[in-house]
Amino acid sequence: MRLYFDRLFQMARCEWLLREQSNLFGFMWTLLQPLLLFIVFYGLFTKWMGPKTPNYGAFLVIGIVHYNFFQNTTSYVLTSLRRRAALLTNFPMPRDLFVFAAGLSGLASHLLEVLVMFAFLIFLGTPFRSTWFLIPLILLLEAVLVLGVFSPLLAVWGAQFSDFDRIWGLLTTMGMFLTPVFYPLEIIEPSKRELIRLNPVAVIIGMSRRAIIDGQGPGVLRYLAILAIFAALSAASYAYFKRHEPHLADYVLT
């Protein structure tokens, strides 16, 4: 067990160093994407969304940061086995290490982005709320969703299908418009709102916005129910991964 976690730490650390180019300036490049998205969406939509959504700047940056984590980390995890094919096919070690190391490196970047996001929110004049202290719990839920539910499945499919990264790229691009990242749910017609509410990323974003902007917590029972659902889905996802584990090297070799 000790060796497993040591390997996980080392691999996650190395993945993060490679992603962020081993220095703070590398991390600045990572911040550029959400910043540019914010500038574009804010510039385009503030006139339309602003009157409907008080504090639209804060609303937008929260949506972008959370969706960015989902999109970037799932895309990175999806290629984790193919990217490390040589390691996978030469060293006997648990295959989930590759998946979780890639996921944890994405999570580490996200945590730094969230810190920068709060600095930006304060700059935008968003008033401090005591519910900001609930954000770590929301981030935990988000981590279980991305690392537990999506990552094992995507890693298997990314190994099995050489073009799955393109398919996932299309799905997450579509997903950005099916998630209330830059628009409030209220502008969607009521019959379609419930469908969007089923989107787990929309759930995370909504919880985060209510805690940061409105000063409302998610509610203990609601939080625990969602955590239980995500945990159950994670168990199923991991079981699927374990079923394919003996064949992963064959997938990446072909």
């Binding site: 190395c14 160093l17 490679l18 081993s22 040589a86 390691l87 096919t89 030469n90 060293f91 006997p92």
Partner: peptide, 17 residues
């Protein structure tokens, strides 16, 4: 396993890492 030992390396990092 002493097969493909070089695949255990991330060349962009330092020797100590």
């Amino acid at each position: 396993s002493f097969m493909g030992l070089a695949s255990a390396v991330y060349p962009e990092l330092t020797v100590e890492e």
